[in-house]
Design a protein around this nucleic acid. Structure first.
Lengths: 128, 128
DNA sequence: AAAATAATTGACTTTTACGTAAGAGTTTTT
DNA sequence: AAAAACTCTTACGTAAAAGTCAATTATTTT
C-alpha cells in the first residue's frame, strides 16, 4: 500500500476534480499532509474519499456525510457522549432503512415496466 | 378515495411547501387541473408526488426523477421505443443496486460503531 | 359586511457543491 | 533550457431546488 497519493492520482482514481478534493478539505472531510504547499493524501484520506463518494451516491449532503464520518471516528469518550453517538447511529440507520425500502419499491416498479415492455414486444411479433 | 386535493392538503400530508408543489408543476412532474386559477390535484398527482419524494430521498435530481416517471408512463410504442425503455430500466436498476450496496455497507459500518460504543459502555461500568 | 384564511403569479434571494479562470510557483520531460 | 505537466491560492460564476416577499384575488368564517 502506498504511503501517499498526489491529488491528481486520486482525481483519476475516483473521477473527480482537484477542485472537489480541495473543497472536501475546506469542509474538513479530509486532512492531507503537506510537503511545502503540496497536498499529500494518506491511505486514510483515500478511505475517507470513498466514504464521501458513497454518501453522495446515497444523496447525503456534505453536512450529513460529515456527521456520519464523525461517528466512525467516535473516540472513547464518556458515557453521555457514547449514548449520544448510539442515538445518532440509530437515527441514521432508520434513514438508511427507509432508503433501502424506497429502492426496493422503485426496483419492483421498474420490473413491472420491463414486463409490460416485454409483453408488448411479444405482442408486436405476433401481430405483425 | 377523494376526487381532488387542494394544494395545502398535500403540503400538510407530505410536509412540503406550496412553492415546492408549484415548482414540480413548472417542471412538468404533476399536472393538476384548475378550477378557475386554483389547482386541484387528482389522486394520480398524489401518487406522482409520492414517487417524486421517494426519488428525492434516494438523491435523484428532478431530471432523473422525470426520466423515471416517464418510464412508468411508457405507452404502447413501437419496437425501437420499447427497447430504448428497457435499456433505460436496466441502467436505472444498476444504479439502484449500487445504492443498495452502498446502504448495506454503510449499515454494517454503523453496526460496528454501535458495537464499539456498547463495549466501551460496558467497560466503563466495570472500570468505574 | 368585515376579518381571517387560502390561493394565485412573478420576481428576487439563498444554499449547496462544486466549475472555471487568473496568476504564479514547482517539478518533470523533451 | 524550454516546454509540458502539476500544483497552489484567490475569487468570481453557476445550476438545482427551493425559500421568501409582494401584490392580488377568492373563499370562508365570524
Amino acid at each position: 500500500m502506498k504511503d501517499f497519493y498526489t491529488i491528481t492520482e486520486l482525481t483519476r482514481e475516483f473521477d473527480i476534480s482537484t477542485r472537489t478534493l480541495r473543497f472536501y478539505e475546506d469542509e474538513g472531510l479530509v486532512k492531507p499532509v503537506r510537503r511545502g504547499r503540496t497536498r499529500l493524501f494518506r491511505p486514510s484520506d483515500r478511505v475517507l474519499i470513498k466514504q464521501i463518494l458513497r454518501g453522495k451516491r446515497l444523496g447525503f449532503s456534505i453536512a450529513e456525510i460529515r456527521d456520519i464520518i464523525e461517528m466512525y471516528k467516535s473516540p472513547p469518550g464518556e458515557s453521555g457522549q457514547l449514548n449520544k453517538i448510539i442515538e445518532g447511529v440509530e437515527s441514521k440507520r432508520a434513514e438508511l432503512r427507509q432508503k433501502r425500502k424506497d429502492i426496493e419499491d422503485t426496483l419492483s416498479e421498474l420490473d413491472q415496466v420491463e414486463d409490460a415492455c416485454m409483453n408488448r414486444l411479444a405482442e408486436l411479433r405476433v401481430t405483425s
